[in-house]
Amino acid sequence: MASVPALKPTNTLVHQLGQAVVEMTVAVGDLALFAAQVVRQILMGLPRRGVMTQTFYEIGVRSIPVVGVTGLFIGMVLAIQAYDQFHFLHMETKLGAAINASLVRELGPTLAAVMLAGRVGSAMAAELGTMRVTEQIDALKALGANPVQYLVVPRFLACFLLIPLLTAIADAIGILGGWMIGSQVLGIDSFYWWLHSKEFIAIYDVQCGLTKSFFFGGAIALISCYQGFHCGAGAEGVGQASTRSFVWSFIAILVLDFFLGVFQSGLYYVLWPDPVSLF
């Protein structure tokens, strides 16, 4: 009698892990194709000025208060938190340099991008998701418009070009917030505050921070628009798309921040060779 082959279990941890890897690979591939489509549409021509202006206003101008408040409180909190350590070392006047360097190079771009992923990215995913669910994206196609060109290109360009500007605003307000607490509340001499800041912060630091925010802006726009375009059915689908857009944007910001940080540090030692290099 022929033996009956044993059924292989298909829901083991290894299977689940494999499934997750396959799904992740497919999602990344889809996102790359989506990004290629966006770039292709940008090269083929921009949407009408009215569409661009409205999107730039929504994403750029209306985000200023949020990034301003974010920057202000980062600067103030850093001043309060770091003062004791600097005071213990009798280096209070260097506090401004530490706050400003960390703001310009790391905290300003990253936290502004996270804030914008929440404010702008989630809104974009929800808006496009709603358009998908209510067949408005199909209606665009039916009326001869390319949905990627009409909906994604303006949002991508607005995020890519304006998030660096918003980051600069967050940096500037954060620097002012730190100085205000440092000089007005903690009693540090303003002259030394700015003198040490000038000594410790090079133009390269500012460039590094702003360069990162171009990448953050592009990633937020692509991930959020992709999630909106591939939204599931109903209110639940829109909600999930919005949540996923923020989570994936946040992860993308952290991953990009690490790799860009590594690259920029490496580039620094290429441009200005130094024997003590971390990379």
Partner: peptide
């Protein structure tokens, strides 16, 4: 495609 008109079930107005 411009020779087609499409009336959606939900109207799908922008």
């Amino acid at each position: 495609r411009l020779k087609f008109g499409y009336l959606f079930q939900s109207a799908a107005l922008f």
